[in-house]
Write a protein that binds this DNA or RNA. Structure first.
Lengths: 107, 107
DNA sequence: CATAAGAGATACCGAAAGGTATCATTACAA
DNA sequence: TTGTAATGATACCTTTCGGTATCTCTTATG
């Protein structure tokens, strides 16, 4: 079970959430991403580092560009944490969720 | 559609997430909550204010105590935002997420 | 009423976060 | 090879955040 703090911290900033939405369309370089915001490449790079620490993307050099790719598995700790609040969602849902959890434990 | 920023910000702090877990058991007063942490009542109160701004709890005076109660609907903007990433999730996780959204939309 | 417990409000502090500027380094392309 | 585009790294600035201290106000309870 991954610690949830890095991913929650990564999601707390609106610029970072927007970066994730852009990366959902396709992998992008730092300069490409910076073109979508009114801030410097250095600032974008910092955000990417935080997102990487949160496990939400991977960065790989391609030639002289650094390409960031969304890592959807990174959202898993968020769902795991939210599951604690099962009790507030109704019985049908609870049954479904415990079934899902059982499946995942079988992996 | 509620803006997601307040709730994401509220979830970014580990103390606040722990407060939510405690409130999931039962409503609690500020002093009661403060007893669970190594910090002053004023600090706890600040966290509660942030959580309230995020729509995750309600605060109501009961006599001379202020009782905080979990507001599970507050998680909905999180799910709404996460929905954008549907395309990347495997079927089991997708089933879990859409089920939660369906339940909450039925309210 | 007197007193203590719970909370509101304000000011303040230190650390972390968001962002810019600058310079060095690397890789492609003409 | 020479220039330029992209990244790396560092230092610095400003704002926000987490937290404490202090004082006041209100409300139970003796």
């Amino acid at each position: 079970m991954t610690a949830p703090q890095p991913v929650f911290r990564a999601l707390a900033d609106p610029t970072r959430r927007e970066i994730l939405r852009l990366l959902a369309m396709r992998p992008m370089s730092v300069v490409e991403l910076a073109g979508e915001f009114e801030m410097t490449r250095a600032a974008i790079k910092k955000h990417l580092t935080v997102l990487q620490a949160g496990g939400l993307l991977t960065m790989a050099p391609v030639g002289r560009t650094l390409v960031s790719t969304l890592k959807p598995d990174g959202f898993q700790p968020v769902f795991n944490w939210l599951e604690y609040f099962d009790q507030f969602w109704d019985d049908r849902l609870h049954a479904l969720k415990t079934a899902i959890e059982r499946e995942q434990n079988d992996d």
